[in-house]
Design a binder for these strands. Structure first.
Lengths: 137, 137
DNA sequence: TCATTTACGCAACAAAGTTGCATAAATATT
DNA sequence: AATATTTATGCAACTTTGTTGCGTAAATGA
């Protein structure tokens, strides 16, 4: 779909910056981080404007966020450091409450095996669930 | 398990800082971000030291990282903006290559429904797979 | 107790993210 | 088509987060 169409469909003004951001996405077919876009559009779109464009796009449903595992993470004790060893696996899910923004390990849950597209070799799995926790319910 | 024991088991020197970090974890039973620990241990453990303690702990398997969905994210076009609409669902998995660190949407995969512990209400799911992609294989 | 290794704290820096505000550009109105 | 209104942009200044180097202090081993 053309950038202009996407903008109209999502009730967004068509501006140069937004169109260029959408063009970047359509020519890559992979997820892009803020700084990647920033470099790609250096001199064309302001850094702050880019933050605001991405925020808008997410709010309106044009883009979706994907948590990244490199920076801004939380840490939890590995299971085998607890008194009772829950099978020593870190393939468990994590639950993050959108209210209190606390994150818990869901120890008694193992990420199911699944079919992955041809050619990809999976060595790590992060399943992050969002919602409302007991306390905040 | 006591902090000192954990350190010995993982081949780490027992220092005041490390012990205090482990104590923080054991008194919370939830995942902690760097800045939470920083506040909790303000004046006791240096900010940089804390980064290094966490790195060490992760390397030695004392702690594990959990990607956080608030900051340092990547963005991808929502499925319904593509020419062919793949069922309009964002409950799909993402694959991040540890070599080239590119992230792809795995469109033809839906996160399976699963039993979540009592009291938690799940509204969002992020499944992030790590490994090696086609290009880098 | 002394030598060696490793961790710590501090300073300085780089990168990432936020806020406020004046200006420019996009839509709406006549 | 010109003007008014709304919204987005760019810039400056700032805060937060993460990194690197290095001298000192603390922990282990002899």
């Amino acid at each position: 779909m053309k950038p202009e169409q996407i903008l109209i469909q999502h009730d967004l003004r068509k501006t140069q910056g937004r169109i260029m951001v959408l063009q970047e996405f359509s020519k890559h077919d992979k997820a892009l981080a803020h700084n990647e876009l920033q470099h790609a559009l250096a001199g064309k779109v302001d850094r702050v404007t880019l933050y605001r464009i991405l925020d808008q796009f997410e709010k309106k449903g044009v883009l979706h966020k994907i948590p990244d595992d490199e920076v801004s993470v939380k840490y939890a004790l590995c299971a085998h450091n607890h008194e009772i060893d829950h099978q020593h696996s870190d393939d468990h899910a994590h639950f993050k409450c959108n209210d209190c923004s606390e994150t818990f390990c869901i120890d008694d849950f193992t990420i199911p095996n699944m079919k992955i597209p041809e050619g990809f070799k999976v060595t790590e799995k992060f399943l992050l669930l969002g919602g409302v926790c007991k306390k905040c319910a």
